[in-house]
């Protein structure tokens, strides 16, 4: 059974569909990147999964059960939303203690986790003075209190410096290697590409892709872009040759399964006039922008 299963989840706020028929699954031992631009519905989805908001329709379950029906939630799921909210007047250690207390978890585990996330030295300061990165680390510690098999992390890399992001990456890797299912959301693709086994990309509340990263690259990336006055004729020639051709805007095409040299030979053979020929970038960043319908910065 999937560790996390989102099934036709829909959340409506008045006239706005924040999440619109979203479905995806997370299997044990996998890190799934949950990607989308800000406002795409990621946090709404995670809040529905964690029983904080009620879905308009559809379901979100953990091991087949709704979060609010779990017998021992802390030992089943660990989650951080919005960087882990803190009372500014309470120390990080006491924040963890109060959550641990409610679940019957002792002080030893709290101290252990504070060491694990590198907060042992600042744990007794009032949390109002914590940096965003420290809050994120404390949030992770809170999520791990009950040593859960499923982790749900909303933008955990926000506020982390490059060393922190590397630390987080290694940390998540080791958690998944222990067989945990990890769902980690982000609006910055680069944060998850080196961590996630697969990605779910959403835009405007709808899923636009769920696939392992390598498949996504193979299916979406690559190809050769050709532009010029005769591209339509070239397109016909290529199609006759069995190539996959996609028009991109005025006077340009992308050939999916031919490299530059192959296209060039065809051009020379038939005396076609072109003005541009180049390999299409295969960066995930651009696939992400293409999928989510956002402007590329290029």
């Amino acid at each position: 059974m999937a560790a996390i299963e989102i099934e036709q989840l829909t959340k409506r706020y008045g006239p706005t569909l924040a999440v619109d028929g979203l479905s995806f699954t997370v299997e044990p031992g996998r890190i799934v990147g949950f990607l989308g631009p800000n406002g795409a519905g990621k946090t709404t989805t995670l809040r529905a999964l964690l029983g904080l908001i009620s879905a308009t329709s559809g379901s979100a379950t953990l091991g087949g059960r709704r979060f609010v029906e779990l017998e021992d939630p802390v030992r089943t799921v660990g989650a951080v939303l919005d960087g882990g909210m803190l009372h500014p007047g309470r120390s990080g250690r006491n924040h963890l203690r109060m959550l641990a207390q409610g679940a019957g978890i002792g002080r030893g585990r709290v101290d252990e986790l504070l060491g694990l996330v590198g907060l042992a030295d600042s744990a007794d300061r009032r949390a109002g003075g914590y940096s965003l990165g420290m809050r994120q680390r404390l949030g992770l510690a809170a999520a791990l209190l009950g040593d859960p098999a499923v982790l749900v992390l909303d933008e955990p890399a926000n506020g982390l410096d490059p060393q922190g992001i590397r630390w987080l990456r290694d940390f998540l890797r080791s958690l998944a290697a222990e067989g945990r299912a990890v769902l980690v959301s982000s609006h910055v693709l680069a944060e998850v590409t080196q961590t996630a086994d697969e990605v779910v990309v959403i835009a405007k509340g709808r899923s636009v892709a769920q696939a392992p990263l390598s498949e996504l690259l193979a299916a979406r990336g690559g190809g050769t872009r050709v532009a010029g006055p005769d591209v339509e004729r070239l397109a016909e020639l290529l199609r006759a040759d069995g190539a996959e051709v996609k028009p991109v805007g005025e006077g340009a095409i992308v050939v999916g399964d031919r490299n530059g040299e192959q296209v060039g030979r065809l051009i020379a053979e038939h005396g076609v006039v072109i003005s541009e020929l180049g390999a299409v970038s295969t960066s995930l960043e651009e696939i992400f922008f293409e999928l989510t319908g956002e402007e590329t910065s290029a």
Partner: peptide
């Protein structure tokens, strides 16, 4: 309230 309810819904 969010971490509170995540720990005890």
């Amino acid at each position: 309230i969010t971490p509170t309810l995540i720990a005890a819904p």
